[in-house]
């Protein structure tokens, strides 16, 4: 037996994947350098003051004028945007699957359309609409609506813009989630067990959509936390616009905040990934 096996083994070693996958190492290394260097350099830049290493850019943040106000504004906008988006999308998507399949292509197109209007153009259009207020509607009750929508303390117009910008991504995320759970069968099974319509949706469909809901929320959150275009052109000052204005006077602080916002995004994403994994393992074992 040994006589037979040893030549075979020699063959095997000669043929089994002789090529080293050098290209993979090279590709990953180059990519690693390109992506890590700017991050490392910014981190260094943010503490590299002329007089030596200093963490003032970070410690001075809280007392910086406008920092907290803009942060609160952004968080508020993010929260409201996520809520509005989910309240609009979830009932519509579930209903489309349960009762009005003919509306489905319509919803599909509507939720894809915002992709063809870049944020700058959308903002331009909104400004166009807002000008109608003073131009044509000065003496009508609609005018009050225009004023309310543009309230600088909480600009609803930004929420509208953000919901539209997040719509395509959130839609696709929720749609993928719904596709995986077969809503119709779930609801029919629940109804068969004696659950009412709303109860079936709340106790059976929504829990199964948890991953997709979280995913959509995260994407929306990330978008609002970083959105600069609409806010700056419309003249409000949420967090990203604040970073911009700080950048003009205090370069170190703006870089420090940039790094922090990157870390925040990262953290959110890891959180989401771990929630997704938990859910995945649960379905795998069930």
């Amino acid at each position: 037996m040994a006589q037979l096996t040893s030549p075979a083994r020699a063959h095997r070693q000669a043929t089994r994947r002789p090529k080293v996958r050098w290209w993979r190492g090279a590709v990953l290394l180059l990519a690693g350098v390109y992506f890590v260097v700017p991050l490392a350099a910014s981190a260094w830049f943010s503490i590299d003051e002329p007089k030596g290493i200093s963490f003032e850019a970070y410690t001075g943040l809280l007392s910086a004028p406008g920092f907290l106000d803009s942060l609160w504004l952004t968080l508020g906008l993010a929260l409201v945007t996520v809520l509005v988006l989910l309240l609009l999308l979830v009932p519509a998507l579930i209903a489309v699957r349960l009762g009005a399949p003919r509306l489905r292509p319509v919803i599909d197109v509507l939720c894809t359309l915002p992709l063809v209007v870049p944020p700058v153009a959308l903002t331009a259009g909104m400004i166009g609409v807002l000008r109608w207020g003073p131009d044509y509607l000065m003496d009508t009750p609609f005018f009050q609506t225009f004023v309310f929508v543009q309230d600088p303390d909480f600009p609803v117009v930004l929420v509208i813009a953000y919901v539209l910008m997040a719509l395509p991504l959130a839609y696709r995320s929720l749609d993928a989630g719904l596709r995986a759970v077969d809503v119709r069968t779930l609801v029919e099974a629940a109804r068969n067990c004696g659950a009412s319509w709303p109860r079936a949706v709340f106790t059976v469909v929504l829990p199964n959509l948890r991953g997709a809901l979280l995913n959509a929320s995260f994407l929306t959150l990330a978008l609002v936390l970083g959105e600069f275009t609409a806010a700056s052109i419309l003249g409000y000052q949420p967090f990203p616009v604040w970073i911009y204005s700080v950048g003009n006077s205090q370069a170190h602080m703006s870089v420090a905040v940039s790094i922090l916002s990157l870390l925040l995004t990262w953290l959110l994403l890891l959180l989401l990934a771990s929630v997704g994994r938990q859910r995945g393992s649960k379905t795998a074992t069930s």
Partner: peptide, 19 residues
């Protein structure tokens, strides 16, 4: 796949080394 040991013969010829 590759085998760890033993032989595969086609018409009496070991084909291990043939890709």
């Amino acid at each position: 796949e590759q085998h760890d040991s033993g032989q595969v013969l086609v018409d009496g010829k070991d084909i291990t080394a043939i890709p």
